[in-house]
């Protein structure tokens, strides 16, 4: 465990909490993609299947339970809460699950470290996490005016990924024999997806203006 990895995990948790609190406090999920949230839930469930038999550390186990729990709550709010579900922007959140899930499923069958069910599901979760933000980015693009909390949510998520890259660089430099190509490449692609958003987020912040994405 190094500071970059720890910062990454905390930022990830923070991003989820920002979103959950926003929904809870405003009773609105306007601008939030349910597709992205459900994809993240699928990511967490397929990756953390080993929760019960593959104990690594209390730290990891607590985070796994918290990520699954908080993301489930967000999905529950958006689907079931009597007021929140009315604010869901389903007309703009039209990204097809299949476009993301199918290629990731095929890729995880073709490229994996070991050919067994749990290894393949784990690999699938790595690939799916890389692209799960796409429905959210498309929704932001469509609605143009991004409210502050939604913008901060996406920014914190991107920052979490950036810190994971620093963590890999640090581990590569300090741990002999450490290499993780599958995770690195997926992670680089995932972080790359945020670059465009980052650019506009920083611009808006510098000019202390409301975040607006171009068409």
């Amino acid at each position: 465990m190094n500071l970059f990895r720890f910062a990454g995990d905390i930022l990830h948790l923070l991003s989820i909490l920002v979103l959950l609190l926003k929904i809870h406090a405003t009773k609105s999920c306007a601008g939030i993609s349910l597709k992205t949230q459900e994809l993240y839930l699928a990511v967490f469930i397929t990756r953390y299947l080993d929760l019960f038999w593959n104990f690594h550390s209390l730290y990891n186990s607590v985070f796994k339970v918290v990520y699954i729990g908080t993301t489930s709550m967000i999905v529950w709010y958006m689907r079931r809460h009597r007021n929140v579900k009315l604010t869901y922007d389903r007309d703009h959140d039209t990204f097809r699950y299949l476009f993301l899930v199918a290629p990731c499923a095929v890729l995880s069958l073709l490229i994996n470290a070991r050919y067994n069910l749990f290894e393949i599901l784990w690999t699938f979760s790595i690939y799916l996490e890389a692209v799960a933000i796409l429905p959210q980015l498309v929704l932001l693009q469509r609605t143009k005016n991004v409210d502050n909390l939604t913008g901060n949510y996406v920014f914190l998520l991107g920052l979490y990924r950036a810190f994971y890259i620093l963590n890999w660089v640090y581990r590569f430099a300090t741990e002999p024999g450490y290499s993780a190509w599958l995770v690195w490449i997926s992670g680089l692609i995932q972080t790359g997806l945020y670059l465009d958003f980052f650019y506009y987020y920083v611009q808006a912040w510098k000019q202390s203006k409301k975040l607006q994405l171009p068409s």
Binding site: D9, H12, N54, H56, E119, W122, Y164, A180, V183
Partner: peptide
């Protein structure tokens, strides 16, 4: 061993 090494991250 490699895949165990990967799985110490979240």
């Amino acid at each position: 061993a490699q895949s165990n090494l990967l799985k110490d991250e979240l």
